[in-house]
Measured scan of single mutants.
Amino acid sequence: VTLFVALYDYEARTEDDLSAHKGEKFQILNSSEGDWWEARSLTTGETGYIPSNYVAPV
């Protein structure tokens, strides 16, 4: 399991995006899409895309 933590708040801009709150942890499901990674929030269980530069490894 690849875990990352949000460094900043991010507000989803499309229905495919996933909002993130600073300190929230995510499981990365797919990081092969360049700057946008598919992730699952460990807080809400929701999945979507987050900007890779907004997260760091735990």
Rank of each mutant, 00 (worst) to 15 (best):
V1D: 12
V1F: 14
T2A: 11
T2Q: 13
L3D: 05
F4H: 05
F4A: 08
F4Q: 01
V5N: 00
V5Y: 13
V5D: 00
V5Q: 06
A6Q: 01
A6L: 06
L7Y: 03
L7V: 07
L7A: 03
Y8W: 13
Y8E: 08
Y8S: 06
D9T: 06
D9H: 06
D9S: 07
Y10L: 06
Y10G: 00
Y10E: 00
E11M: 11
E11S: 10
E11H: 11
E11Y: 10
A12R: 09
R13H: 09
R13E: 10
R13W: 07
R13N: 08
T14K: 13
T14P: 02
T14I: 05
E15P: 14
D16Y: 15
D16M: 14
D17M: 13
D17W: 09
D17G: 15
D17I: 08
D17H: 15
D17Q: 15
L18W: 02
L18R: 01
S19L: 03
S19A: 08
S19W: 06
A20K: 01
A20Q: 02
A20T: 14
A20G: 03
H21E: 08
H21L: 10
K22S: 05
K22H: 05
K22A: 11
K22F: 06
K22V: 12
K25W: 14
K25M: 15
K25F: 15
F26N: 00
F26I: 04
F26S: 00
F26M: 04
Q27R: 09
Q27T: 10
Q27H: 11
I28A: 01
I28C: 05
I28P: 00
L29A: 05
L29D: 04
N30P: 04
S32R: 11
S32Y: 09
S32E: 10
S32M: 12
E33Q: 14
E33W: 11
G34I: 10
G34H: 11
G34K: 13
G34P: 14
D35P: 09
D35V: 09
D35L: 12
W36G: 02
W36I: 10
W36A: 06
W36M: 15
W37D: 01
W37F: 09
E38G: 03
E38M: 15
E38R: 13
A39H: 01
A39N: 00
A39Q: 00
A39S: 02
R40N: 01
R40M: 12
S41E: 02
S41P: 01
L42T: 07
L42Y: 06
L42A: 04
L42H: 04
L42R: 01
T43F: 10
T43R: 13
T43N: 08
T43I: 10
T44E: 03
T44L: 02
T44M: 02
T44P: 00
G45A: 04
G45W: 07
E46N: 12
T47S: 09
T47K: 09
T47H: 07
G48Q: 00
G48S: 01
G48F: 05
Y49D: 01
Y49E: 00
Y49T: 06
P51L: 07
P51Y: 09
P51K: 07
P51N: 09
S52A: 13
S52F: 08
S52R: 13
N53E: 10
N53G: 11
N53R: 14
N53L: 10
N53Q: 11
Y54N: 07
Y54Q: 06
V55I: 13
V55N: 01
P57E: 08
P57W: 06
P57L: 09
P57G: 04
V58L: 13
V58T: 07
V58P: 03
